[in-house]
Design a protein around this nucleic acid. Sequence first.
DNA 1: CGGATCATTTTTGCATTCAAAATGGTTCCA
DNA 2: TGGAACCATTTTGAATGCAAAAATGATCCG
Lengths: 212, 212
Amino acid sequence: MMHDEVVSRLRHVLTEGEIPPGARIPERELCASFAISRTPLREALKVLAAEGLVVLLPNRGSRAAKLTRKDVKELFEVCEALEAAAGELACPRISDAQLREIAELQAGMVEHYRAQDLLSYYRCNRLIHEAIVRAADNAVLAGFYESIAARIRRARFITPMSPEHWALAIQEHEGILNALQRRDAGGLAHILRNHLRRKREEVVRAGFAEGE
Amino acid sequence: MMHDEVVSRLRHVLTEGEIPPGARIPERELCASFAISRTPLREALKVLAAEGLVVLLPNRGSRAAKLTRKDVKELFEVCEALEAAAGELACPRISDAQLREIAELQAGMVEHYRAQDLLSYYRCNRLIHEAIVRAADNAVLAGFYESIAARIRRARFITPMSPEHWALAIQEHEGILNALQRRDAGGLAHILRNHLRRKREEVVRAGFAEGE
DNA sequence: CGGATCATTTTTGCATTCAAAATGGTTCCA
DNA sequence: TGGAACCATTTTGAATGCAAAAATGATCCG
């Protein structure tokens, strides 16, 4: 198995998967489940530690990182800046096909909203934001965004939404699509910023924190 | 020696130091010079590869990354967004002591400009930008900024400046300090963005690229 | 003489090993 | 009985060993 594959599999285990924040990372077990030795696994652990997904305790192993309130605040602040930048860059660069893709995702998302299917809604939502970042056509930005998104995902896409916020979010997304179609970079950046800021407030209000 | 220390020593060797972009990274030699074995060195290499400073060629070792024109463009785009965000966040958060520090750096920078001492000028310049990021009090942002800055440093702080650009940069820095003092977040973000954009144009015009 | 081919050496990536540190459990004594 | 001290076990971090791949360079043939 290739190095990058180990990293992304481990990332998956930590973000989507079986190891909850704060839990000890069972080196031995993961080696067995990935069918590799400790050396490449430990290399991957160091990479994810640099990303902030893993904390290494000297001589005491590694644990899945827990998000503190401050982490959430910082991650949202940077996420705001990155998504706004992505929006601005995407406007002049996005292709018609990409626009169509986002419009379709948006339609699907509205459907899921109508059906009050939060999980599917969040999936569409996430895909839209990722599509905008992709449309910005900037690998560095995409890499940072992916790294932030991986850390913040639980806070961002799991926190339940109030009906009012949900309705507002839908409205904002209409605005996002509209600004993209009009290639209104400044407007899009502004909407994205507000969109994220509101989400952050909701998350903070929900008191999200995995530990200090 | 601790893991993080190996990473930062290696980063130093790659950015400030002896290994030019594109050059092969002599694993064996570095092990000897750091007095460690290959295992911890290779862990550090993977971390820096994830950061983009090192490219790993499967079965063919690692090399110091070269900046392509596209890399430079992308790095500047993200750097713009991050510095602007840092400025906005710094305005309400910066302490008087930090403001004084920046004012002093600025004064020193102007001195170096008068003396036409480009190297010292760049050093002050860099310290100012780093101080602003520090004043934003956001560890995630600071980490990303450091990572970007490490990669872009050669392009940003080595490209020679035209007399006109240099004079303009000094003026812009006055504006930066002024906006900080007035806590004008929006204004500061705007100036920082233009400042970086101009620098980027200069770098692009100088045709900076270490290879494709 | 130039270029292809194959043996030799070096390098790479990973598994294993080893010493040091932490953990857990048992014993011993107040 | 409670708790400190001690020892066995496990886990960690790093060095070493090993097989496979790549680089080197010596030889051979046109």
